[in-house]
């Protein structure tokens, strides 16, 4: 009896979270896919019915015949969507590179800090990540406004005499993304650098490498897993970012997360927004799968 209940318990450990994720994470994507293939109607919910099991197999087949790719055709015909995808990818790529350029020296400096203060530094990097995303983006509005704190400061010290227009431009989006996602970049790089065996650098220097050469030949390659994980953690969510372009970006900024949101909330066009989501997912599936492999590899090394 005890043995039976133990076997059952170990089954449940797998089955319960598995079933939860299947139902609330995987199945919804199929529903999105299905709705992206249906017609828009003026009803609630605003699309033609998904499945009507009452019709039996024949009914389902009828439904399948009704599938339409109109929404996808619509997306390709309207340059707005294409531009939004491209500009999201461009903005996310530039932001990822900027985050790496700013995040790497921070992670490097932390890894070189005296061991006694490292846990405190680590905690200080994590802390902003726990504070609300929305609040952190909001904080930048007061700084970047034309009459905001940054312009006041720059005018006061005499660098400029006309306020810079930063808010509601792409520059504000870059600042917002770099700022919000910086901890995601710093943490994996820091943990890669911290694990590194310092004697390797000493060996390289003993063999005549200059410190800069030793960095590029030894340190950087060894930190590469952290760099890759950090870039993916920034890039993937940034492509679909909504809050930052909405609050900091201007009306001319096109990002697909914002397009999807307004398609859904303002135009109430559920089938088209589903199609937008499916294409976004198809674009992101390669980096997401790559990220999963990186994670799984890190786990098996930790074992």
């Amino acid at each position: 009896m005890a043995k039976l209940s133990s076997a059952l318990a170990s089954r449940l450990v797998i089955i319960v979270p598995y079933a939860w994720l299947l139902f609330f994470f995987l199945i919804p994507f199929f529903i999105v896919l299905r709705i992206s293939l249906s017609q828009t109607t003026v009803a609630m919910p605003p699309y033609t019915p998904v499945f009507d099991l009452a019709g039996g197999l024949a009914g389902i087949l009828d439904k399948v015949r009704e599938f339409s790719v109109d929404n996808y055709v619509w997306l390709t015909e309207d340059a707005l969507y294409f531009n939004a995808y491209v500009s999201s990818l461009v903005i996310a790529s530039i932001s990822t590179i900027l985050t790496l350029l700013i995040g790497y020296p921070i992670a490097y400096g932390m890894a070189k800090a005296p061991p006694a203060i490292r846990p405190t530094l680590l905690m200080m990097v994590i802390l902003p990540f726990w504070t609300s995303f929305l609040i952190r983006v909001y904080a930048w509005i007061a700084i970047l406004k034309p009459e905001g704190l940054l312009n006041q400061f720059l005018i006061a010290i005499g660098v400029i005499d006309q306020p810079l227009i930063i808010l509601n431009t792409n520059s504000a989006i870059y600042i917002g993304i770099v700022y919000s996602y910086l901890p995601f970049m710093v943490l994996p790089i820091y943990s890669a650098l911290e694990k590194m065996d310092h004697s390797l650098i000493e060996a390289a220097q003993d063999l005549g490498c200059t410190p800069i050469r030793a960095f590029w030949r030894v340190t950087f390659p060894l930190s590469l897993p952290g760099v890759v994980a950090g870039c993916l953690l920034v890039f993937i969510p940034a492509v679909g970012e909504f809050v930052i372009p909405d609050l900091l970006g201007g009306s001319e900024t096109l990002m697909i997360g914002k397009t999807l949101w307004s398609e859904f909330n303002s135009n109430r066009d559920w089938p088209v927004s589903s199609a937008v989501a499916i294409i976004l997912l198809m674009i992101l599936v390669v980096p997401i799968v790559y990220f999963q492999n990186v994670q799984a590899k890190a786990d098996s090394e930790g074992r």
Partner: peptide
């Protein structure tokens, strides 16, 4: 890493 707009939309449709 999933963009929140996708997770949100898919759960709503569920």
């Amino acid at each position: 890493v999933m963009p929140e707009v996708i997770t949100g939309l898919s759960l709503l449709l569920l």
